[in-house]
Structure formats: structure tokens, C-alpha cells
Design a protein around this nucleic acid. Structure first.
Lengths: 231, 231
DNA sequence: CCTGGCTCTCAGGCTGCTCTAAGGTTTGAC
DNA sequence: GTCAAACCTTAGAGCAGCCTGAGAGCCAGG
């Protein structure tokens, strides 16, 4: 660790900024702060931080919009801070582009732990969404939004593609219906979680997959679904 | 990656150079900079860069003139940085010779993406930079900013050409409306993103393209648009 | 100052996807 | 074997997302 890690903390409440700053600097990290959304974007552009700790509730443009703008030029890890606990599962929605989230009030030690975990995570070399990932006979190209099965193109709807992409992003990992709703449908979806079943059914049909003996998407009874790892 | 890619960045504003340098070096590219037109030509001659990022507004001789002089001895990829306020006609006439362009203010991230796209693009016939790229019946000449459909010239407005050029730059890749706005209009554009639809509609009409059965620009529902790859 | 061309906003119409609801099927416990 | 819970499937109404046309503003050139 030669170059110090730079962290940008964004919150409109000064005490929270001070608290965060204290804990992060104790880790040997360099901390810059911003009190509004616009300021945050400017500073992010100027100082190119490695990590951004971002409150969602901000005066002016909100945290999600700040995130979008920062994402336009930076691959920094972003941790969202939200105060409404009922939204917490949903805030994690990767659709928003965040890497992690915390619910306020949070413990500063938890924040430090999360940042450490992020920094440990290998970065897929700067915004370079790999061409196409191959999973057995299934090739998935994120940038083209195309899927081919044994070389034959499969036509998926937007939701089906997003669902598949989400599952494929971490093969072998079980996603609950709620997690899938949060990440694919977004944080503000309301409705029956078994909607996932419907789209998964359509997806399986198009992939020629059988629910009782799946090659691609396995059902984990009582838990959710997972994409099969290549054997 | 045997020999590092060399990039020459030209701008009279020091902060912008620093920003660009930071992002490009993070890609593992070697960056040299110039702050004026004359300096740019000299350095280009001395260091033989693979890519030149060139601001149009320069003290002394402007970017167009720099481009002309560099073209005299180099076929490096050239990306022009234009500002939205500049007269479109002027740009239409003078960008001839550039391989790509970005509208200021741009996000450094976009710049990296554009350079990557250029480097991925196979150089057609050394020393004789491509006359026009051919996509089915559509010939697009970036340098003359002209388009012909089955040999017949098509008259496009500046925006229409820019939009087409952006889509064509990476055939098959899906661009979201937001991405197109960021890259063609600049990141400070405010307004409804469906503005893209309008210009795309005009573009399609001029290309004789049908939205429901497109030969050139496909709609990817819920995601954006993409230029069809040659089958 | 007028004219023409381009950009952008707005609203209506259409297509096809999404979601709901209900019934059928499988799984696992007893 | 029986039952309930969990899961899968189907079908259709509603609506989101997309396309297009019309027109108001804006700028450049005459």
C-alpha cells in the first residue's frame, strides 16, 4: 500500500462527516468531504477518490443522481447510506451502481469494515465489461445484450435478460426472490415476489431448461434460485 | 500488451490535462501533454503517439489546424474535443480527418471508452486512413462527415450524423439513451432523454429505415439502441 | 428584420411486455 | 398414503415504453 487510499464522504450533516472522517483517518486513509450533491460530483472529479461514502438524502440532487454522475467518470467503490430501514434491502440494488450500502444510524466500525472488504475485492480492470461470458453452452454478452445457446441466438425480453445476467454474475450463489426483485426490478418495486417465478419460467422455456432437471437455473427450495456453476 | 500505447493530450487548461492524464495512465497508457497548438505538432512529430486527444479551442493555431498539420506526417487516431456552443457548420466542415470526437464537458470515463473503441477498431490500410467505413449498404465517412446509402448521398444534420457516428463506432453494442446524451450532447445536457428518439426517428427516416424491422439502428426495449452488426 | 433550418418539447397512438390471478404440480413431513 | 407448503405454468388485461407528427423557440445568414 504505497499510495494512500482516498475516500470521499458525502453528507449534509456536519457531525456525521466529522465522525466518519475520524474513523477513516485512523485507518491511514485520506479523507475529503462534501456537504451537497453538486459539491460531491465536483470534488469526485477533482480528487479521483478510490471510495465514495454517499448519503442518499441530500439537499439539491439526491444520492442516486450523484452516484449516476460520478459513475460517468469514475469507477470508485460507492457505499450508500440510507436512513429508512425498510428500504435497506432494496438500496443494495446494483442497478443503481452502488457497491454496498449501510443503514443509518450505522456504526463507524462497520463502515470501516465494509470499506476494507471492498478494497479487498478484485476490480475488473476499470470499467471494462468483459465481452462475453461463457457458461457451458450459454454465451452471454452484456454489452450487446445478446444470449446464444450452443451458438444459436436466443431472444430475451429486457427483464429476462436482466434476471439471467444477475444470476450469472455470481454462479453458484443463491439469490432469494426478494434479492432478485431488488436488483433487477429496482428498489421501489411493490408486488408479489412470485413474479420472479413467472419470468424465470419464461426464461427457462427459452433456454430449453427444465425446472425439474435444470441445466442452468436451479431452484433451491425455501431459499431462492442459483445459476449452476460449470461442472 | 507489449509496447505501451502512447497518447498525446492537447489542451490549454492545465486541470483538464491533469485529469485526462490521471485517467489514461490508470489504463497503463503512456501520456504526453501539450498546452498549445505549435507545441502539440512538435511533440507529435517527436514522440509518434498512437492516439491524439485534441481540444479544438487552443491559443495560437487552433485544433483544426493542428489536426491538419499532424495528418501530414502521422495517421495516429485523433479524438477532437469540441464544445457544444461551437457552430455546428464549422465543425461539420473541419473535423474532417478526425477519427472521433467528444463534446465538452465530457466525462474522462467516456474518453477512455472512446479510445478503447478506437484501438479495437482495425486500422484500414496503413498510411491511407480509411476513406469510409462500410456497413451493409451504408457508407460512412467520418473524416468528410458524409453518408451514402447504396451510393446515394444522404444529407444529415449535425446531430443526426453525430448520433449515427456514435452508434456505428461500436456496432452491436447497446447504448442507453443516457450514454448517447452524455457522449453526443455532453454530460451537462438537461432535458428529457427521449430527445434521442426524435433525432433517431429523423435519422431512420432519412436512411429509409423502419423502426419495426430495422436494417441499421435497432431498438433494444428497456435498454437503448444499437447499430446492427453486419451479419 | 425577416427567413429557413435545426433543435427540442409535447402529446397521441400503438405494440408488445409485464404483472396479476388462479389452477396445476412437485416436494417433504408425518 | 395424505396433506400442506412451495413451486411452476398459463392466459389475458393493462400499461410502460417506443414511435411519430406538429409546432414553438432559437440561431445564422441574407
Amino acid at each position: 500500500m504505497t499510495v494512500p487510499i482516498r475516500v470521499l464522504a458525502v453528507d449534509d450533516e456536519e457531525p456525521i462527516l466529522a465522525l466518519v472522517r475520524g474513523y477513516l483517518e485512523r485507518e491511514g486513509w485520506q479523507v475529503v468531504t462534501a456537504a451537497s450533491g453538486l459539491e460531491a460530483v465536483e470534488i469526485a472529479q477533482a480528487s479521483a477518490p478510490d471510495v465514495v461514502v454517499l448519503d442518499v438524502m441530500l439537499p439539491g440532487i439526491d444520492g442516486f443522481e450523484v452516484l449516476r454522475r460520478i459513475r460517468a467518470f469514475s469507477d470508485a467503490y460507492v457505499i450508500l447510506l440510507t436512513s429508512r430501514s425498510e428500504e435497506m434491502d432494496r438500496i443494495v440494488g446494483l442497478t443503481a451502481g452502488a457497491d454496498d450500502y449501510l443503514v443509518k444510524p450505522f456504526s463507524p466500525r462497520e463502515l470501516v469494515a465494509r470499506i476494507r472488504a471492498l478494497l479487498r475485492r478484485p476490480r475488473t480492470s476499470m470499467g471494462d465489461p468483459q465481452e462475453a461470458t461463457l457458461h457451458g453452452e450459454l454465451a452471454i454478452d452484456q454489452r450487446r445484450r445478446t444470449v446464444t445457446l450452443r451458438g444459436v441466438p436466443v431472444t430475451l425480453t429486457g427483464t429476462e435478460f436482466n434476471l439471467l445476467a444477475m444470476l450469472v454474475s455470481e454462479p453458484g450463489i443463491v439469490f432469494s426472490r426478494q434479492q432478485l426483485l431488488d436488483r433487477v426490478w429496482g428498489i421501489d418495486f411493490v408486488g408479489d415476489e412470485h413474479l420472479v417465478d413467472v419470468h424465470l419460467g419464461n426464461l427457462r422455456r427459452k433456454l430449453g431448461d427444465d425446472a425439474t432437471d435444470p441445466r442452468f437455473v436451479e431452484t433451491v427450495r425455501g431459499a431462492g434460485f442459483r445459476f449452476r456453476e460449470d461442472p
